[in-house]
Simulated scan of single mutants.
Amino acid sequence: MRELEKAIAERIVRRLLEASGSTATVILKGSFPGGRMIGGKYSLATHTITMYLTEIASQCVQLFGSDEQLAEYFEVVLAHELGHAEDPCLAELAGSLEQHKTAMESARVALLIEENAWSYAMKLLPHAEPAFVDRIIEHSLASYFKAIEQAPA
């Protein structure tokens, strides 16, 4: 498994920032600190997206069996993180997650946050292969749907 070349990642970052008009800062790092396999993370407090290249490569191989489409996978994950960065409802939704809600309400809000980001991402990816993107989205949202299914009403 290879890590995406930083120069290629930087080109994709520039292209998507330009396409989105986002003022978010994008930071490229090697690995996510800790044991979780997080490919990208948006910080509302600093309006910063951090992309973890090692985890993105691992996710791509895990989901597709190879790293042949690693650059495309990186682009989809970054578009999703830009979706969080440009979501005008994110601050309000994140705030409602912190309120004392039922497990079901929290799970639904978390799903809405992710769906909003994916909806925005799709606008940045008109050239992407639909089946490829759909598989990533389906995998990404699976744990949120599971949380809703398992949450007490």
Rank of each mutant, 00 (worst) to 15 (best):
S66D: 10
D67Q: 10
D67R: 12
D67S: 12
D67E: 14
D67G: 15
E68W: 07
E68F: 10
E68R: 14
E68P: 07
E68Q: 14
E68V: 09
Q69E: 11
Q69L: 06
Q69D: 11
L70K: 02
L70N: 00
L70R: 03
L70A: 01
A71P: 08
A71Y: 09
A71C: 04
A71N: 05
E72C: 02
Y73N: 02
Y73I: 01
Y73L: 01
F74K: 01
F74E: 00
F74S: 00
F74P: 09
F74G: 01
E75F: 11
E75I: 07
E75N: 07
E75H: 11
E75L: 04
V76H: 00
V76P: 02
V76D: 00
V77A: 03
V77C: 00
V77Y: 03
V77R: 01
V77T: 11
L78P: 09
L78M: 09
L78F: 08
A79W: 04
A79P: 13
A79K: 03
H80R: 14
H80E: 00
E81N: 04
E81M: 08
E81C: 06
L82V: 01
L82G: 06
L82N: 03
L82F: 02
L82Q: 01
G83Q: 14
G83H: 13
G83S: 14
H84Y: 13
H84L: 13
H84W: 09
A85L: 06
D87S: 07
D87T: 02
D87L: 04
C89M: 13
C89K: 10
L90E: 15
L90A: 10
L90N: 13
A91M: 06
A91I: 05
A91C: 06
A91N: 07
A91K: 14
E92D: 14
E92I: 12
E92C: 07
L93G: 10
L93P: 13
L93W: 13
L93C: 14
L93F: 07
A94T: 14
A94H: 07
G95L: 04
G95T: 08
G95P: 03
G95R: 12
G95W: 03
G95M: 09
G95E: 02
